[in-house]
Design a binder for these strands. Structure first.
Length: 485
RNA sequence: GGUCCCGUAGCAUAGUGGCUAUGCAGAGGUCUGCAAAACCUCGUACGGCGGUUCGAUUCCGCCCGGGACCUCCA
């Protein structure tokens, strides 16, 4: 099925086709592992996950999905320094005298937390072709910087290597993803040009000179040794090149990365490798929390473990985020997650009923449903419409009324759909572990009810509810289910 | 200062120059000793003011409100 995607390069929706038939090579900017990732980060990874699943399931492609782990940058260095409040001795051990070892201990810990988080929200490790750590690819980064330098687009200053943007811009396109207004560059609020000795404020660093107490690697460039560490942008260029080859098909990330990160990535790779980076650039919008930008000062800054502590199911979070279009600002609210929980459960209940109900006479057109839902998904990942179509169908086709054959057809459709959404359970309803004494209470209540001793039956119901369960009567018996919330 | 996005019923999320929006919540009903579940029915929403048009939530302008990016934040 044809897939259409918004490409930031062309600022339009384009028909997608991979460079190599049948294989999609896709790179996603991953986390910087200096702390827990927040739910905004998670949205970015979920959007990438959605895309790669649609490519797999609907597009029928083999997907080589790479997501990097940034384990060397300003923040990881800052938080691995002696005396850092982010240091957790119970997980990272004591700090050593070796800055690189400290960096490694900090980042490995947060990497493991990250892996747990993405697994919890339904990103499957076996869908990832590679998760390269930046520190494992430093030779590749050095090689790229040397190439850029040899091609005349880098200079050394104060022990650092910078990309000479003005020279690059003179005869190459720049601003492919983002209309950079170099005229008004200086007016920007966050420029701290004095920190490093670059010639132009717009130049960006490829290799950062070592500062006292910082982890460093020796970089040999043109006969001189430059102790330091890679700049941020260079990481992705080198790892993408090593693992996927350039150009690859799709590069994903949050909208904020369009500039400067992705723009500079394009320039570097072109200046060093002489190739374009990626055919499609797919950027997801941010999320807000209760209508406001998420920030620590507003107290609305959440990590996944914050949400778990509040008793939220991460798959409800996944569902809620997938129910909004990836290019629109998503408003994260606790009410919204509760709504998502109910909606998700309703579909789950429908799936179970397809398996459990005897079946009626009604027929349905599963192929029509499939093509409608998939058409929306392949139309720039329009999950909201896909879900709306699904719910409309469910509303029109009660599971119990469908003929057995159509129930089975639908089930296999849901199985396929779940390869994309990943929020439902296909299979037998998991058995409930009802405590024996609750079962006894329920049985006593059933007896009391048969004896039409309703006062006693209601009293027992109260006791059962106090235990966290409720009974639902049927004509020929009853069910015990956990009490909601 | 520059560039840009958004404002849809109680909440969230789509969409469209005229055609029943989707979910959750809510109301009524069927069923039930009660309840729950399930099912049925139910909402004349598109920030404000102008303009274009036979017709605007949809196009244009202005205003109000929220937000993003502009050198390392997904």
């Amino acid at each position: 099925m044809e897939i259409r995607l918004y490409n930031t390069l062309s600022k339009s929706i384009e028909r997608f086709a991979p460079l190599q038939p049948g294989v999609v090579r896709m790179y996603s900017c991953g986390p910087t592992v200096y702390n827990h990732v927040h739910i905004g980060n998670l949205r970015a990874f979920l959007c990438a996950d959605l895309l790669q699943r649609v490519l797999r399931v609907v597009g029928g492609y083999t997907v080589r999905w790479v997501m990097n782990i940034t384990d060397i940058d300003d923040k990881t260095i800052r938080d691995s320094q002696p005396g850092s409040p982010a240091w957790k001795t119970e997980f990272m051990g004591q700090q050593t005298n070796d800055p690189r070892e400290n960096l490694r201990r900090l980042t490995r810990y947060y990497e493991s937390v990250f892996l747990r988080d993405i697994e919890a929200i339904g990103i499957r490790r076996d869908h990832l072709f590679a998760m390269p750590r930046a520190t494992d690819y430093i030779p590749a980064m050095m090689d790229l910087i040397r190439r850029i330098w040899h091609n005349g687009y880098a200079y050394v200053s104060g022990g650092s290597v910078y990309f000479n943007l003005s020279r690059w811009i003179a005869d190459h396109p720049y601003g492919l993803l983002f209309a950079v207004d170099l005229e008004h560059f200086v007016a920007g609020a966050r420029i701290d040009a004095d920190q490093y000795e670059r010639e132009e404020v717009s130049d960006f660093v490829l290799w950062k000179a070592r500062k006292e107490g910082e982890p460093s690697w020796d970089f040999e460039l043109d006969g001189q040794v430059l102790p330091g560490r890679p700049g941020w942008h260079i990481e992705c260029s080198a790892m993408g090149h090593e693992l996927l080859g350039l150009p690859f098909d799709i590069h994903t990330g949050g909208v904020d990365l369009r500039f400067p990160h992705h723009e500079d990535e394009i320039a570097q790779s072109a200046a060093g490798y002489g190739t374009e980076t990626a055919r499609f650039w797919v950027h997801n919008e941010f999320l807000e929390v209760e209508g406001q930008k998420m920030s620590k000062s507003l107290g609305n800054f959440y990590t996944l473990s914050d949400l778990l502590e509040r008793g939220l199911d991460p798959l409800d979070v996944r569902y809620a985020m997938l129910s909004a279009h990836y290019q629109s600002v998503f408003n994260f609210t606790f009410e919204g997650i509760a709504a998502a929980r109910r909606a998700r459960r309703r579909v789950q209940e429908y799936i179970y009923q397809l398996q459990e109900q005897e079946g009626g006479q009604q027929s349905c057109n599963v192929e029509e449903l499939r093509s409608e839902v998939f058409a929306y998904l392949t139309d720039n990942l329009h999950t909201p419409r896909a879900l709306a179509a699904l719910f409309t169908f469910i509303g029109e086709h009660p599971a119990a009324q469908l003929d057995r054959q159509w129930q089975r057809e639908l089930l296999s459709f849901f199985e396929q759909l779940n390869e994309i959404f990943g929020v439902w359970h296909i299979g037998e309803r998991p058995p409930l572990h009802i405590p024996v004494h609750v079962k006894q209470l329920a049985q006593e209540r059933w007896q009391a009810r048969l004896e039409r001793n309703f006062a006693r039956a209601d009293k027992l119901r109260q006791q059962i509810m106090a235990e966290g369960y409720q009974v639902r009567d049927r004509s020929d018996g009853y069910d015990i289910v956990p009490l909601e919330e």
